[in-house]
């Protein structure tokens, strides 16, 4: 169930950034048996999606509109406070302070980047990677936030000696 086994960073980052909805392979569970072999049941032959009536092709997509995330005064002050605590080596205190900020703005990718940076400082690269991916998902449409999330993700991967994946993630930077 570990995140690292779900996806290669390349596949995930590429999927998130390119918008490809295809799922990445999951390697942590055993290979999936055929539906009828272990299900205790004989199902009718798999029904493919039903034939569709005459269709129109979707038009080319308009360029994705841009958004920009920033911190509110409340969360900005908490992030500043967390930085001070980190600088004094109080990582638990910094973590609690960032928790407060995320309770106020749970979907702000910049705060998830902050939490990921703290996890890296705590030598928890695996959780830092999770924060990076969460930040990346929330940063859709915000290039600046995406870049911050990608940098965090690359650092988290590198901290796990997954250098090639880190390199692939970095190649997405600035696009």
């Amino acid at each position: 169930m570990r995140l690292t086994t779900f996806f290669s960073a390349t596949a995930c980052a590429a999927a998130l950034l390119s918008g490809c909805p295809a799922p990445a392979p999951r390697a942590s569970l055993p290979p999936r048996p055929a539906p009828t072999s272990s299900g205790g049941a004989t199902a009718p032959p798999p029904a493919p999606p039903m034939p569709n009536p005459p269709s129109v092709n979707a038009p080319p997509r308009a360029p994705a509109p841009q958004r920009e995330n920033h911190l509110s005064p409340a969360t900005r002050s908490l992030v500043t406070q967390a930085h001070t605590l980190m600088a004094h080596g109080d990582l638990d205190g910094a973590s609690s302070t960032l928790d407060r900020a995320l309770r106020i703005e749970p979907n702000n990718p910049l705060l998830w980047v902050e939490r990921g940076r703290l996890r890296l400082a705590e030598n928890d690269a695996h959780q830092a990677e999770g924060c990076g991916r969460k930040a990346l998902a929330l940063a859709s449409g915000d290039h600046a936030a995406q870049n911050q999330a990608l940098r965090l993700l690359a650092d988290a991967l590198r901290a796990q000696q997954r250098n090639q994946e880190a390199h692939d993630v970095e190649s997405q930077l600035g696009r």
Partner: peptide, 30 residues
């Protein structure tokens, strides 16, 4: 590719969503 309702003039404008007026920024989902 979606099947279209024949009587409807589904504009090649899909995806749905006309731009709203761009305005001041807001912290995402606060």
């Amino acid at each position: 590719v979606l099947p279209a309702m024949s009587a409807c003039n589904v504009a090649p404008g899909a995806p749905a969503g006309a731009p709203l007026a761009a305005g001041a920024k807001i912290p995402a989902g606060t």
